[in-house]
């Protein structure tokens, strides 16, 4: 959430003949001006690293594969076990770090599913319009009228608990936001002079959509996708927590918190650390989304 760049000087700056590198430098400057954006980028980078390198950097990789050390069960955080151990003596730090890969994958798949469903529908609703567009928008409204988590709960209830079903359910309820976003953006672009000009010289519909409309929708979609990575991770953890998502001993943060809940208050570290990691991941994606909005979509800055 950087301060607004004074529009006069920015416009003059951008109006100069410029290369892509120069534009990038401008974006980087706006982005770096906000400490919050940098913090978000740092957190996201950190968790991507944890997800990529997890198995090689954790102290006890065998603990994720069901190792049991009953002599070390429920130990408080120490130099040997940074986040303590659980009821079978598994190192919680190891499991939480490996959980980063699980949660990021879940978030990514849900967000991809949602964009894959939502963006084409939004473009059709906005560009083709008519009764078809109207129908798409009304259906979208209905889906938006039930909280995503409740609808996902209903779908998982029908399909049965499990991590794959939880991802499918959340993906199926996550797309309506993208339809709304892309439809309104497409409607606005459709009236722009450059689209009209393209139409006037006989450019085909598909070409207009792919060359003129879609590229201009990329910025708001990116911003929303970044925010949604966070909320999808949060929702999947929620399903894990109520026992409908990932099942223990799978290292998923929500399921870990739910399991650790039985060991409160004495063995508090069991639930505390997975939750802290969820918080930091979601915080990172939200701050990054805010920062991206500042540079990509300055008009809608809140």
């Amino acid at each position: 959430m950087g301060r607004a760049v004074s529009s006069g000087s920015a416009a003059a700056w951008l109006a100069e003949p410029q290369g892509a590198a120069r534009e990038l430098r401008f974006y980087a400057r706006v982005f770096a001006r906000s400490g919050a954006s940098l913090l978000g980028l740092g957190l996201v980078a950190l968790f991507l690293l944890l997800a990529a390198l997890g198995p090689w950097i954790v102290p006890y990789p065998e603990d994720a594969r069901g190792a049991v050390h009953l002599d070390q069960k429920l130990q408080p955080p120490s130099a040997r076990h940074w986040f303590g151990t659980d009821e079978v003596g598994t190192d919680i730090y190891t499991r939480v770090v490996l959980g980063a890969r699980v949660s990021l994958q879940i978030g990514l798949i849900i967000t991809l599913l949602a964009t894959a469903l939502g963006v084409p529908l939004g473009i059709v609703a906005g560009y083709v319009g008519g009764p078809l567009g109207e129908t798409i928008m009304r259906v979208t409204d209905v889906f938006l009228s039930v909280p995503a988590l409740v609808l996902a709960l209903a779908i998982v209830g029908a399909l049965g608990p499990g991590i794959v079903n939880a991802i499918v359910a959340l993906g199926l309820v996550w797309w309506p936001g993208y339809v709304r976003l892309v439809q309104s953006k497409t409607l606005a672009l459709k009236g722009q002079v450059f689209v009209e000009a393209a139409r006037a010289v006989g450019t085909g519909r598909l070409r207009i959509v792919f060359v003129h409309i879609l590229p201009n929708c990329v910025s708001p979609i990116t911003v929303k996708a970044s925010m949604d990575m966070g909320s999808a991770i949060l929702a999947a953890a929620g399903l894990g927590f109520i026992g409908l998502g990932a099942q223990p001993p799978y290292p998923e943060w929500g399921a870990m918190i739910s399991h650790g809940r039985n060991y409160l208050p004495t063995w508090w570290w069991y639930s505390a650390f997975p939750g802290l990691f969820i918080y930091l991941t979601v915080l990172g994606f939200n701050l990054l989304g805010d920062g991206l909005r500042d540079i990509l979509d300055p008009q809608s800055r809140g």
Partner: peptide, 16 residues
């Protein structure tokens, strides 16, 4: 910002 990012069920557990 924290209010949006914090998992409500976890915050509830910690308050408890």
């Amino acid at each position: 910002v924290s209010g949006i990012a914090i998992p409500a069920f976890w915050a509830g557990l910690m308050l408890q």
